[in-house]
């Protein structure tokens, strides 16, 4: 009985921690330790969220569409590059440094250029998201493909399996775990990427909304949209976790 109780407390402790933070935050605002125009209280943020709900959902839809297209293309590109790098050592040697360089360029720095080249519509956003998301996928999948068990590989070879058969029967599923771990990272990158791209130009999307409320000093709305963005990321990551469970039933046993 006590152990069960202990268990519930352990599992729910993060809820308690969040509640404490919210209470302290509310207290700081109510007793005006920090002036309210600088830090809105949680209640103000909630009110702003409810008040602008329709508008926020409209922007969310746009951001999600951009992130979805970008992530899809990023994943496809990432997997293709990883497979090519795994099958051909020359491709590996040629691509690896370039891949690393693409990741050392700050996203914020290239976003304005992309807007300049590709305009204010969907295109620059999608390209930015692809750049941000393909890399974790490539590295993860490549690692998964390379770490395929050597003995099992030899066993399949001794059975007379062709390269294609080894890839299909062994490598694909061996690297699935690494793929999903990378996907979890890429999913949150895709949302962040979309928002950053929207800051720099566009007509709709959560990033655009964010820029507007910042310019009108509506910090309650600013906080509301920040929380919404992190909530979306969390939900998407949980979704990846569920898909992983479905795709890898052998992990559940």
């Amino acid at each position: 009985m006590t152990r069960k109780f202990q268990n519930i407390i352990n599992k729910g402790s993060y809820l308690v921690a969040i509640a404490v933070i919210l209470l302290v935050w509310q207290g700081v605002c109510t007793y005006e330790v920090v002036p309210s125009f600088m830090l809105p209280s949680p209640v103000d943020v909630w009110k702003a969220f409810v008040g602008d709900f329709g508008l926020l959902m409209m922007h969310t839809k746009i951001t999600l569409i951009e992130a979805g297209i970008g992530l899809f293309l990023g994943v496809v590109l990432g997997v293709v590059i990883a497979v090519l790098m795994d099958t051909n050592q020359m491709v590996y040697n040629a691509c690896y440094p370039i891949l690393v360089i693409t990741q050392t360029i700050p996203t914020v720095a290239i976003a304005p250029l992309l807007v300049l080249w590709l305009g204010y519509d969907m295109a620059p956003k999608v390209v930015l998201i692809v750049i941000a998301t393909f890399f974790p996928i490539t590295i993860g999948v490549l690692d998964g493909l390379k770490s395929t068990d050597k003995d099992t590989l030899n066993l399949l070879r001794s059975m007379g399996a062709s390269k294609v058969q080894i890839f299909y029967h062994l490598k694909v599923k061996s690297s699935l775990g690494a793929f999903f771990s990378s996907l979890k990272i890429s999913v949150s990158y895709s949302i962040i990427g979309a928002v950053i791209a929207e800051w720099l130009g566009g007509f709709n999307g959560l990033g655009v909304y964010m820029t507007r409320v910042r310019k009108s000093f509506s910090y309650d709305k600013m906080f509301a949209v920040i929380f919404l963005i992190s909530l979306i990321s969390i939900v998407l990551m949980l979704l990846v976790k569920e898909v992983r469970k479905k795709c890898m039933p052998w992990e559940q046993v």
């Binding site: 003995d151 066993l155 001794s158 059975m159 007379g160 029967h169 599923k173 052998w250």
Partner: peptide, 25 residues
């Protein structure tokens, strides 16, 4: 390869395939 069958010390069953699929491989 593929002429005689070979089994190693470890069972080397593929963890992501069911027993029947492993055996049928």
């Amino acid at each position: 390869t593929g002429k005689v069958s070979y089994m190693l010390q470890k069972d080397l069953l593929l963890p992501f395939k069911t027993i029947e699929d492993n055996v049928a491989l």
